[in-house]
């Protein structure tokens, strides 16, 4: 029983990371109507920034995280400005291929700078593990911090989107960019803001991920990126609560699959569940049918 609870907590923790990454996918999709497949690699870049600043340069972890968030935010905005904005009127396929290109570009930049060897990432979490039920259930500090960070970020983000002026502008653009522009919303600016927020969250996700799974390579971001994309689709792409639910569920399924079925098959199980969900409900758990406007 304690084993199950422990797996469940670990699943929620991993799922929290997926949820943070999925937020970036789902917000960008909702507002710019594109899949930013380079999003996973922004996580990897963010983790290398923390690695360089904390492990190599010896800065305090908090400073390293702040620098990483700043670097990723700028990176996200620059990627959007250079690679995606010129393609605003282009077909979706062109944008998708460009995003994959950006993804490879980032991986190869990391390869050039840091080489292909695995770097061992030092956890930025210093709080001690929590021992429950007389030591039968031990929850690591990383797990606690990851889950708390995800909850806090979800609450702040939801309040920002629902109750701030730029947040409402984001909702308006995601529904109807042209009508939002008629209200005086700078659509390009709003898209840039979305990339900035998504990339900042990716930096946080990267730090949390590498603190729990401390090996860092130029391809570290790729698999979590794809799984977070699955989480976003799972929850209903474009929906922020959907990304949260999808991420958490995916993390739980993956960890329970590893624990009780097969650690080799865990990823296959994750994707199989996605296929089943999409067969039953093609728009994802919280996704809505998009009505074409006449």
């Amino acid at each position: 029983m304690m084993g199950f609870i422990s797996y469940l907590v670990n699943g929620i923790s991993l799922g929290s990371v997926y949820a943070l990454i999925a937020l970036g996918y789902t917000m960008v999709y909702g507002i710019a109507k594109m899949l930013n497949f380079a999003h996973g690699d922004v996580i990897m870049i963010g983790s290398y920034v923390v690695f360089s600043t904390v492990s190599t340069m010896g800065l305090p972890p908090a400073a390293g995280i702040l620098i990483s968030v700043a670097v990723c935010t700028v990176l996200g905005v620059v990627i959007e400005r250079i690679a995606y904005r010129p393609l605003r009127q282009a077909s979706k396929l062109v944008v998708l291929i460009t995003a994959i290109g950006v993804s490879y570009f980032l991986q190869n930049v990391a390869l050039l700078i840091y080489g292909a060897n695995t770097k061992s990432f030092t956890s930025v979490v210093t709080i001690p593990p929590l021992s429950l039920a007389g030591g039968a259930l031990i929850i690591s500090g990383e797990t606690i911090v990851t889950i708390l960070a995800c909850i806090v970020i979800m609450i702040v983000l939801t309040l920002f989107i629902r109750h701030s002026k730029p947040g409402r502008a984001m909702l308006a653009v995601s529904e109807d960019g042209g009508a939002a522009q008629l209200m005086g919303v700078n659509v390009d600016g709003t898209i840039a803001l979305t990339f900035a927020i998504g990339s900042a969250l990716a930096a946080v996700a990267g730090v949390l991920l590498c603190s729990s799974y401390p090996s860092l390579t130029p391809y570290t971001g790729a698999m979590p990126g794809i799984k977070a994309f699955v989480a976003a689709v799972f929850g209903g792409i474009g929906s922020i609560p959907g990304a949260f639910i999808g991420g958490i569920l995916l993390g739980i399924i993956e960890i329970l699959g590893k624990a009780y079925i097969s650690s080799q098959l865990a990823d296959a199980i994750v994707f199989a569940v996605l296929i089943v969900v999409l067969l039953v409900k093609p728009t994802g758990i919280l996704g809505r049918q998009i009505q074409e406007k006449v």
Partner: peptide
């Protein structure tokens, strides 16, 4: 101000 064709209110707001 411009009231567009088909109204284009923000349905989910």
């Amino acid at each position: 101000a411009h009231v567009p064709e088909g109204r284009r209110v923000f349905a989910e707001l």
